[in-house]
Structure formats: structure tokens, C-alpha cells
Write a protein that binds this DNA or RNA. Structure first.
Lengths: 238, 238
DNA sequence: CGACGCGTTGAATGTTGTCAAACCGAGTGG
DNA sequence: CCACTCGGTTTGACAACATTCAACGCGTCG
């Protein structure tokens, strides 16, 4: 049992139950083992502690093993923009590539464990493992796609549509991790949601209340139960 | 004279007056020549014709030689989101990397000439030219940075702030191309601006009128003269 | 216990979107 | 040559949605 506990720093890539999410599917067993060799697993991070901060030197990319991470940018004027939420099995920190220093920051939203993958060693490794190289390009590309979807969301959609879309995103990502897609706990605060979606805290709160009144959701602080996923999808799709 | 005309397909990278913008600075003369060998220059594109479209096979990245290009995404529901405007010397089409097919589209906003750089040959070339490889990573990274800046703009800024920021962006990019930073012609329509900035055409138009009334701009259709760049910067910075 | 962070709710305000009309310049056909 | 249409743009009146400001509830922690 201990070996599969996500907080356990001893767990290796082969046994990690997230490996289907963060590793390329095509990897052979011995390749996973070689990757495993370079992955560094520290002890759990406390809530609100930084994985990296703006202007930190870029040296690694990260995978969430347990808990949850948010990333944010700081504009020249000091405005904070949350750019992503990352759940177990997901990769973050790729935007630092090609800069020598991070332009964003990453913090734990709750007690979390992460895997650190030194970038230089990953580069070496991908020279001899084409599927890793490809996977890695896909990750950068996915980052761009994600950002552009967020741009569309912010640019074209109402508060209700934005919140519905975020809830469905978390729902489907939970499903991938074999968790319930209809009942889950939001790791982030209302302020984080608002910041991410370009809304004020009050608006986010009101949307949750409205959804509850309309029977789409059951909301208890951060606990969410989706009661009418079709209606949410309807909202998210229009 | 003919050799420096930007529409001329015969002009090569060494002589192109945009080369300081689209090529890495560190390239040796003979390296430029090797790159020049793989660049394909077609005849000019007409206004509104596509460089590539959604679902086209990804095979190359592009540089603007003359004219201007816009890129846009199409959401599942068919909504169009303009994601970028590209001026001479700028590179576009990088978001197709790591997908086999484009997820976005690129169209000429006016008669334009472009350089096509086949991706597979660029990959080969960068194996032997470290500075090209690095430059190339920077481009992907810049795409992410740009997108995230747009996210912040859409998420946190008012209509006036968004328009001011776009104008200043074009102004400074013109300066890099040795054109006037205070007097220029906008290549894109009001509708494109609105789509890009998450505003309606009417709002964009009103903001231009207001800026003119306040003496920040002189607007004549697409011709713009910046009268008070400090005031614009003030707006863009807050 | 009180202070504090976080979330919710209410009322008023304001910015932006919507709808409608008109303008302008370019191109077309009578 | 003029009247016409058409696309892009501007402007106005109005409505709607989100923000702002304010107050309050609730749980946690010192």
C-alpha cells in the first residue's frame, strides 16, 4: 500500500499510478526506468509555498504527484494573472524553457508532492528516446493550445459560461485520474477562480449560487456536486 | 533597388532588410546562406487568402516579408478568435509544431509576401546550428509569453486600456522595422481588432473616437497618428 | 474572546453589448 | 455619369451584465 501512496517520495515512475498521465504511452519499461533515474522527488510542499518564483533560474519541469499547483504571471505593473491549475499527473513549468529564468511562478494550493525533472538531463535523455522528445514537444504545444482556449473563453464568454467551462474541465480531468467526475473538491479559492477567469470574487460566488438555485450544482464551500452536467455542457458550448 | 523590394521573391536572406528581425543575431554569414537555401518564397498572397487553414497538415513555419498576416483559432462551436497580428520580419505558424495538423489558420490582411521554412529541413539544420535551435525554442516560448500577456490584457483591462496597448505594440514593432512609431496604417479591420481584444466593433470604434476627442490620436480610417504617446502609455500601464 | 481570512449577499453604479440607423468610399451596372 | 449596392465604420439610445462598495456570516487561529 505504501508504495502507491502519492505523498510517498519513494514511489517510482513504474509504480506511480499517475504514470499514464504524465509519461508518453509508447515508453518501454526500461525507458521508464531510465526516466525514473533522473526524476527527483522532494518532500511534500506546504500550502502556499512556491515551487518556483518569477525570475528564478529555469532548470527543471515538474509533474504533480499529489495535491494541486497553480501558476501565475506577474505583469510589469505587478498585476497577478493566474494562468493554470494543475492536478496530479499533470506537467507544469514548461513556459520557462528557452528563457534562462522563469517568467511565471508556481505555488502549491494545498499540501502537495511533485516530481522534479531536471531539464538538461531530460534533453540528454530525449536525444536517445524519440518518443520522449515528441512527448515533450507535445507538452509545449499543449501549453499554447490551453492558453489560446483561455483567450477565447475570456474574450467571448459570459461569467456563467466561463465558470461552467472551468468546472467541466476539472470534472473531465478528474475522470482521467479515475476520480469522480461529478463530485469533487475544488482545490482553489474563489479568488483564484475569479483571477483565472477574469471575474471578481463576487461574480464567481454569485454564479455558484445561481447554478445551485437552478439545480445544476450542489455547492458546499469547495465541495462540488454536479447535478446536471448536460446543462453545464450546454452553457459551456454556447 | 529591385533586390531590396520586399515583394520580390528573388531577394535572399542575406540581403533581406528584415533579416535582423527573423533570424538569430549570432548567425554567421555562411550559416545565413545555408538557411537561405531551404527558405521558399512564393509569389505574393492576395488579401484574405489563407497561408494555411485549420486542419491543414503542418509542414512549415513562416516569416512575413511584406504585408501583414493574422492568425485565428476556431473553437468547437465555430467561434473565431483572432490570436495574433504579424508584421514584416515576424514569424508565425509555430503553434502547429507537435501537432500533425494546424489547429489555427493564417490569412493575409492585405497583399503580402511570405517566406516558407519547411519544418523538417529546419529541424535537420538546427542539429548542426546550435544558435538556430536556440532561436527556435525562443520562438515557441515567445508564443506562450505573448498568449499569456493577451490573457492578462483580456482578463484585467478595460476597453481603453486594451486598445491603447495594441496601438503601442504596433507602434514599437514599427520602430523595430525602422518605420515611424507615431504615424502608421493599421493593416487590420475594426472587426479584427475587436475580435482580438474581446470587444465589439462598436466599442473599438468608440474608443478611437474618444482617444481622438481627447487629443491622444488623430484617426482617419486606418491611418493613425499618435499625438500623445505618454498618455497612451499611462493607460496601457494601469 | 476577538481578529482575520474567506465566502456570500444586497444595492447602486458603470462599462460594454445590443439594436438600429446612418455614413462613407469603392466598385458596379444602367 | 450617376444611381446603386455593399462592406466597413461610426454614432446614438437603451439594456444587460459585471463591478464596486458595503455589510454580514462562518470557521480558524492566536
Amino acid at each position: 500500500m505504501a508504495v502507491t501512496c502519492p505523498h510517498n517520495p519513494e514511489v517510482n515512475c513504474t509504480d506511480c499510478r499517475m504514470n499514464s498521465l504524465c509519461l508518453p504511452i509508447a515508453l518501454e519499461l526500461d525507458e521508464v526506468e531510465r526516466l525514473n533515474q533522473i526524476v527527483q522527488r522532494g518532500r511534500p510542499l506546504q500550502k502556499d509555498s512556491h515551487v518556483y518564483n518569477v525570475a528564478d533560474e529555469f532548470s527543471a519541469i515538474y509533474a504533480v504527484r499529489s495535491g494541486s499547483i497553480k501558476t501565475y504571471n506577474v505583469s510589469d505593473q505587478g498585476a497577478i494573472q493566474v494562468t493554470g491549475f494543475f492536478l496530479p499527473g499533470e506537467i507544469f513549468g514548461i513556459d520557462g524553457i528557452a528563457h534562462t529564468h522563469y517568467v511565471s511562478a508556481a505555488v502549491a494550493m494545498e499540501t502537495s508532492a511533485i516530481c522534479e525533472i531536471p531539464f538538461s538531463r531530460l534533453e540528454e535523455l530525449s536525444m536517445t528516446m524519440p518518443s520522449l522528445q515528441r512527448h515533450f514537444f507535445k507538452l509545449m504545444s499543449k501549453e499554447i493550445t490551453n492558453d489560446q482556449q483561455l483567450i477565447t473563453l475570456l474574450s467571448k464568454n459570459s461569467a456563467e459560461e466561463r465558470v461552467a467551462t472551468l468546472l467541466l474541465s476539472i470534472s473531465s480531468r478528474n475522470a482521467k485520474r479515475n476520480l469522480s467526475s461529478l463530485r469533487f473538491r475544488l482545490p482553489m479559492s474563489r479568488a483564484d477562480i475569479g483571477n483565472y477567469l477574469g471575474l471578481t470574487v463576487e461574480t464567481v460566488s454569485r454564479v455558484f449560487s445561481r447554478f445551485q438555485k437552478q439545480g445544476l450544482l450542489e455547492v458546499d464551500k469547495k465541495e462540488i456536486e454536479i447535478k446536471d452536467i448536460d446543462a453545464l455542457q450546454e452553457l459551456s458550448n454556447i
